[in-house]
Design a protein around this nucleic acid. Structure first.
Length: 371
RNA sequence: GUGGGUGUAGCUCAGUUGGCAGAGCACCGGGUUGUGGCCCCGGUUGUCGUGGGUUCAAUUCCCAUCACUCACC
């Protein structure tokens, strides 16, 4: 059911364009996936997401399992009908959240025991359990349970987390296969921190497990951008060329351009949506902090020439007013603009790769920010 | 009219046994990378109600006065 095909490659870089076929539709890559952790891309309806160009969105196992709970989503046959989004959905396994949100996470070979950040209740998440939950959510792409390590970390800590993540990946794959042929895809996640030897070994041995696709985890966890890019540059070519490659949790527009150049196909990041709610707008010339006093009487849209709903109808002065007044509309309009910017950026990259002009695209992208 | 209370940053209020005036919020910048509309980091702001007195020094002690406020008549 799940298929991926590379349809164009850039000659001056590793950038490539492809098509991913999922149970709920096709996705053109490279792609940016808006994050809808709790079954909603915050402040937007699915119709608006569609209109702004979203092809696939993210949901989160950890969050949805804790609230509203699988039995609620079961009644709808999965997340799609529950949230009224009939396009593709990728669910994160919850590994990252257990370590970033939950209290008292304890890792054992069997799985991870943690306390809910919602009500303090105790839970255990195992690789098999993570797959079982994602089956019930009925996502198009499931992710393996893994262990993410902050930066910096010592080599022993990295080694242990990578070993655990690999073992869990193997068990996730077995659990996935044990149910017979599935319309759901499963991606493996490469860990190993910023240690080159560990990363390379992790990428190679995970690549042998024949997942539907592969992800780089544990990036953008506090390391300098150059180190993140170096780590991705080292790891991406070591993963099977015919499979989609997903860099998790990244990143800024600059990060995305640099990672596409290094062969990445998929991204997700909270930056466009979260920063929208915090008043930061992304434009081709850089970021714009809408609360700044210089926009108080500015009648121009956030970005001149931008085709998004927000820029076609509203001024910086009005958006500033809405944001400072904490009006709900501020979150919606800012989110619409930022997602439009990110999705449009990826659209432009796909076109450039297909026309084999990715280098030209990069040049124009950089020049716009230098003005 | 009588008695009491309160006047300190834009707002709500600390404080000083007399020694360069503080907090929270607001405001102004910055941050945010597999999401808690959260949070974090910097910064600006004062005739200390007014006028006198005592003192080397008063926002602080004393006197007067004004404003607001409460109780009683």
């Amino acid at each position: 059911m799940f298929r991926f095909e590379v349809i164009a490659r850039s000659t001056g870089s590793r950038a490539r364009a492809g098509v991913m076929q999922t149970a709920h539709g096709r996705v053109a890559t490279p792609v940016f996936m808006p994050v809808g952790t709790l079954g909603s891309v915050k402040s937007l309806t699915p119709e608006e997401l569609d209109a702004v160009g979203a092809q696939i969105i993210l949901g989160n196992t950890y969050h949805l399992y804790l609230r509203p709970g699988c039995e609620v989503i079961d009644a709808f046959g999965g997340l799609h009908r529950f949230m009224h989004w009939e396009g593709p959905i990728l669910t994160d396994s919850g590994g990252f959240q257990v370590f970033s949100l939950a209290r008292l996470a304890r890792v054992e070979p069997e799985g991870v025991t943690f306390q809910s950040h919602v009500d303090g209740s105790s839970h255990r998440l195992t690789p098999e359990g993570a797959i079982a939950i994602q089956r019930r959510l009925n996502s198009d792409i499931m992710m393996c349970l893994d262990q993410c390590v902050p930066y910096p970390a010592d080599i022993e800590q990295l080694r242990r987390a990578e070993a655990t993540s690999f073992e869990w990946a193997r068990r996730c794959r077995d659990a996935w296969r044990s149910g017979g042929p599935s319309h759901q895809a499963l991606f493996g996640i490469v860990q190993g921190g910023m240690d080159r030897g560990l990363r390379a070994a992790a990428a190679e041995r995970l690549g042998a497990l024949d997942f539907s696709g592969y992800a780089l985890g544990g990036l953008s966890v506090g390391e300098p951008q150059a180190l993140m890019l170096d780590t991705a540059e080292l790891s991406l070519p070591l993963l099977p060329d015919e499979k989609p490659k997903y860099v998790m949790g990244v990143g800024t527009p600059e990060d995305l351009v640099e990672l596409v150049a290094r062969g990445a196909d998929m991204f997700d990041c909270v930056l466009p949506t979260r920063n929208a709610r915090n008043g930061q707008l992304f434009t081709s010339r850089g970021t714009l902090t809408i609360s700044n006093a210089c926009y108080r009487q500015d009648t121009a849209p956030p970005e001149e020439g931008c085709g998004c709903y927000t820029c076609r109808h509203y001024s910086r002065a009005y958006l500033r007013h809405l944001f400072l007044s904490r009006e709900l509309l501020a979150y919606r309009l800012n989110t619409l603009h930022n997602l439009h910017y990110f999705l449009n950026l990826l659209h432009a990259m796909r076109q450039a790769i297909r026309a084999d002009d990715f280098e030209g695209f990069k040049k124009r992208f950089r020049e716009a920010r230098e003005i």
